[in-house]
C-alpha cells in the first residue's frame, strides 16, 4: 500500500515532465503549476491529491483490518488464548495503525521529493507569506507537512479500530471506515452544516498551509491535534468497551 501511495507523486511528475505544455497558473491541483520550476512542489501536489481519498482509503484498510482481520483468520482466539491480553492487543494494533498513518504520509512526501529532484530543478522555495527559504529548510517544512497529514489521519484510524471490533469480516470494517471518511468530507463541504464542521475529523485535513508561512503558525497544527486527540479518546474508548467483554466466537 505504501508503494501505491508513493506512486501518486511519481505519476504526477511523469505526467508533467512528459507533457509538452506546462500547466498554467490555477490549472489542475494546487502547486502543479510550480512543479516545472521547482521539483520539491511535486511532494506538496502529491499530498494534496492523496488527502481526500487515497490516504484515507489506505488508512481505512490498515485500521479496519486490525481486529477483524485476526477474527477472519481465526487467529484472534489463539492470540487471546496465548494470552496476549485484550487491552494489550488493542494497544498494539492501534500503535501499528498510527505507525502506518505516519509512514503513509511520509512515503508520499519522500517519493515526491525523490522524483521531483530527479526530473526537475530543485531550488529555494517561496513561501505563502512571500519569504524565500533554502532547500534544507523546505525539506524540513515538507517533513512537518507530512507529520501534520499523518496526525490528521489518527482520528480516522481510531474509528477504523472501533469498527474492526464490531465484525469478523475485515472487508466490511475497511469499507465502512472508508465510507465514513468520504461522508465526513462531504458534510464538511455543505455550508448549511457549518456548526458541525469544527467537529468533523476531516475538517483540518487540508489545513497545512500555516506550515508554509514565515514564521510558522502552529495554530492549525494544535487545533488539528486537539480534534484528533478527541476522536482517539472517544473511539479507542469505544473499541475498548466493546472488545474487553466481547465473546470471541470466530
Amino acid at each position: 500500500m505504501l508503494a501505491a501511495l508513493a506512486a501518486v507523486p511519481v505519476l504526477i511528475a511523469l505526467a508533467v515532465r512528459l507533457s509538452s505544455r506546462d500547466p498554467g497558473p490555477g490549472q489542475g491541483p494546487p502547486f502543479l503549476d510550480r512543479v516545472s520550476q521547482n521539483g520539491l512542489f511535486i511532494a506538496l501536489t502529491g499530498m494534496v491529491v492523496s488527502i481526500p481519498l487515497f490516504l484515507p482509503l489506505t488508512v481505512s484498510v490498515a485500521a479496519g483490518d486490525t481486529i477483524a482481520g485476526e477474527a477472519g483468520h481465526g487467529t484472534l482466539r489463539y492470540l487471546l488464548a496465548a494470552p496476549a491480553g485484550r487491552v494489550r492487543l488493542l494497544a498494539v494494533k492501534y500503535a501499528a495503525a498510527v505507525v502506518f498513518c505516519l509512514a503513509a504520509a511520509l512515503s508520499v512526501a519522500t517519493a515526491g521529493v525523490l522524483i521531483g529532484s530527479a526530473l526537475f530543478d530543485v531550488g529555494p522555495i517561496t513561501l505563502l507569506s512571500g519569504d524565500t527559504i533554502s532547500v534544507g529548510e523546505s525539506l524540513l517544512r515538507l517533513f512537518l507537512v507530512a507529520c501534520y497529514v499523518g496526525l490528521s489521519l489518527l482520528g480516522l484510524a481510531a474509528i477504523g479500530l472501533f469498527i474492526s471490533t464490531l465484525t469478523e469480516v475485515p472487508v466490511g470494517a475497511m469499507a465502512a471506515t472508508a465510507v465514513l471518511a468520504v461522508v465526513s468530507q462531504i458534510l464538511d463541504n455543505l455550508p448549511q452544516l457549518e456548526w458541525l464542521h469544527p467537529w468533523l475529523f476531516s475538517h483540518h485535513w487540508l489545513g497545512f498551509a500555516d506550515l508554509l508561512r514565515q514564521p510558522i503558525s502552529w495554530d492549525s497544527f494544535a487545533a488539528n491535534g486537539l480534534l484528533q486527540g478527541g476522536y482517539i479518546v472517544v473511539f479507542c474508548g469505544l473499541a475498548y468497551s466493546r472488545f474487553a467483554t466481547k465473546d470471541v466466537l470466530s
Binding site: H73, G74, T75, R77, Y78, A81, A82, P83, G85
Partner: peptide, 19 residues
C-alpha cells in the same frame, strides 16, 4: 486469566494461522 492461560496450551475449534 493472565495467571492461568500461560500454563494452558490449547487447540480451539481447529487450527488457524496466517496463510
Amino acid at each position: 486469566l493472565r495467571d492461568v492461560l500461560p500454563r494452558v496450551g490449547a487447540l480451539i475449534e481447529g487450527p488457524a494461522f496466517y496463510p
